[in-house]
Design a binder for these strands. Structure first.
Lengths: 391, 391
DNA sequence: TCGATTTGTTTATTGGTTGAATTATTTGAC
DNA sequence: GTCAAATAATTCAACCAATAAACAAATCGA
């Protein structure tokens, strides 16, 4: 009668779990950390930690270093750090006016960064992907010249990505139902939404709580939702479509077919039009100069954004909102409008106000998040990586 | 430097995991299931399953029964079912005009149900809790007379519940910062939001996907969010406050201080006022009779609800919405309005429409969900339960 | 009645953690 | 300068839980 229980068994995947636990403990430590400290932090025996660390060192995931300067008597510890020359993540991005690739190592250092400007909308998707493949190959060659092993690649696209890796629709790229396979050189590649990956990128740089929402303001408005330290993708991978939250039931019509969507109030096109300028940098300049049209436009956008953010907070009870994309640079003028509207509409604002932050990574957030998500795969399941490398 | 890794270690909690796996497999099976079938379904060896089942049987979580009629040769199997006389959950509820208690056994059968009508707003919170304690004691006595062991109690309240069990505010009960301790007879009790527990109750009866949102329409409008088969409570336990999603930035003012909240369009008071009737049942009667005022009011409420649901779906990518509370009985007249608005505003509606369902459990959903969440605790960690019972 | 078949248990083996003892390396005191 | 105290890391026997394979039990079918 085969009742589908969902979870398979776990025999001695205890080791896999503990391997990940040790690796994560070292990765989260700001300084080189000794085996004994890992033992204390995890609760595992020193003996066990030694055995696990041995595996991780021979598998090139950890490296021994000089320990942090210590005080008092006793045998000096051997410091452990995440290996800078082990696996690396290849982060890729195709966006409206550029494509890029970056290589990030396990320590989080950006080892290479290649960006090719150029309007991707002019090309058909397969041509754009072929160009991206060449860029990826160059980045990979650079990484391997450094002695790194590229563990995988993730591609960020501004669109709806299905669970099977098909790009359902990327309106600003003009893509529809585009299948993205592995890279030409055989490296495994997965695709994900740009806002999702940017959220992961912001999460990787730390300083953020385990629950937050990243709001990306570009031509469209998307959100990456991080709950309990993990990205929430939704049952089909289509979560975070914040741009079409209704602000006003009978507002201006939107390209989605409905009326009064957030995008019509706080999308890049609407704001630039209201401010009477052509680009985001021109808008920032006008706002800095105190031009009334610019300030009015930004105040209105902030109010609309504040309403949408209030909705998100009331629904998900996150206390932190990270503003990325063009919102990051415009936050100084958006902040008051957002805070006022959110303060009025968030039920729990009286106890704990919503915290607004500008994205730390700037325009590279999605690409870096893509590389980071490759590394996250290794960090979360080092046993699988070791098993794959062994033979 | 003690890097807080978050996850503690796991030694031979493999057993705990597999114990839960076996128990869940039996619980999910519609018919009595043999050890061999459990083995096949889980991937565990027959030997291992036998050992685990032994523990579960001696711990009164499983019972041997006649197996399902079988065909073909071979030694006849011994059927396993979840024990009807093992641990039971005590579900409690305090709502505006009644308080209740129910006892549910591990098989999901409702063994006892006690409801005391009466306006709870008239009492101060401690008096209401004392009355509830007496009701709980009666229910517990009935359960123990049946040979059941009450494993714990959960209380459903219509309000914001903090992680530490304090009821921050329950507007329709007139409660504010009420601390709820254990029951007078020493039984552990936890508190949770009514919509959250109702969502869990609906999840328990099955037939639902792993991701859905339960929308409860009472005086206020709340939502219970289920993601990946688990309730999402938010970082502080205050998720799901859907009633204050903005429908129209300059709509009628709301008691929350903002304008144009959903509650002002689809809350019970607004709808009854618009329809010119006094109660939900009168509204249903008027709608059945085809009264224009009632139909117009319900259509308008459906449209507002559809907008809010579209927001939820765009944000979380759930495909199923369960309508509970007074919405369950009014769904026939709300459905078209919701579906039209949601179809227009949900970005992915073209590929996969939003599925609307009426709640299956009716007004007892929260109370039953509360009892179910006690049992869920036992089902999810039978090892802890066995360890607690052993000495 | 016998073989085939399926269920459930017993037994030896293996993988992985633990705890205690052991070795290694430093600081500080006499 | 030597020795005791302290801390780090490794080695080794014991243990726990799952596995695989053999075995015992109970039924069907010829």
């Amino acid at each position: 009668m085969m009742s589908a229980t969902g979870s398979p068994v776990r025999q001695s995947s205890v080791r896999a779990h503990n391997l990940a636990l040790v690796l994560r403990t070292v990765a989260n430590s700001p300084d080189p950390i000794s085996r004994a400290s890992v033992s204390a932090a995890t609760g595992l025996t020193r003996a066990t930690v030694s055995a696990l660390v041995d595996d991780l060192v021979t598998g090139a995931l950890l490296t021994e270093r000089e320990p942090a300067p210590r005080t008092g008597a006793g045998r000096p510890a051997v410091g452990l750090v995440v290996a800078p020359d082990g696996p690396a993540g290849l982060g890729l991005e195709i966006n409206v006016d550029y494509r890029g690739a970056c290589v990030v190592d396990l320590t989080g250092a950006i080892r290479h960064r290649l960006v090719e400007p150029g309007d991707q909308r002019l090309q058909d998707p397969q041509a754009a992907l072929a160009g991206l493949g060449r860029l990826a190959a160059r980045a990979r060659a650079l990484a391997e010249a450094d002695g790194l092993t590229v563990a995988g690649a993730v591609l960020a696209v501004p669109g709806l990505v299905a669970a099977d890796g098909m790009v359902r629709i990327a309106p600003n790229l003009g893509w529809q139902d585009v299948t993205v396979g592995d890279l030409p050189d055989g490296l495994a590649m997965t695709v994900d939404n740009e806002a999702n990956l940017a959220a992961l990128g912001e999460l990787d740089v730390g300083e953020l709580p385990q629950d937050f929402v990243y709001v990306s303001g570009e031509i469209g408005i998307g959100a990456g939702i991080v709950l309990d330290g993990a990205l929430y993708r939704g049952s089909r991978g289509w979560s975070g479509e914040i741009g079409h939250i209704p602000i006003n039931s009978d507002g201006p019509s939107c390209r989605c077919g409905a009326r009064g969507c957030l995008e019509q109030y706080a999308g890049q096109e609407a704001v630039l039009r209201a401010a009477g300028v052509g680009t985001v940098s021109a808008l920032a300049a006008a706002a800095t100069a105190g031009k009334p049209d610019a300030l009015t436009a930004l105040t209105a956008a902030g109010a609309a954004l504040g309403m949408a953010i209030a909705t998100v907070v009331n629904l998900l009870d996150v206390r932190t909102i990270v503003l990325g994309g063009s919102y990051a640079s415009l936050l100084p003028w958006l902040r008051d409008g957002i805070a006022a509207e959110a303060g009025r509409r968030v039920l729990t604002a009286a106890w704990s106000p919503v915290e607004l932050r500008a994205a730390a990574l700037g325009p590279d957030a999605a690409m870096l998040g893509a590389a980071g998500s490759v590394l996250r795969g290794v960090l979360d399941d080092p046993a699988a990586w070791l098993a794959g490398r062994r033979p």
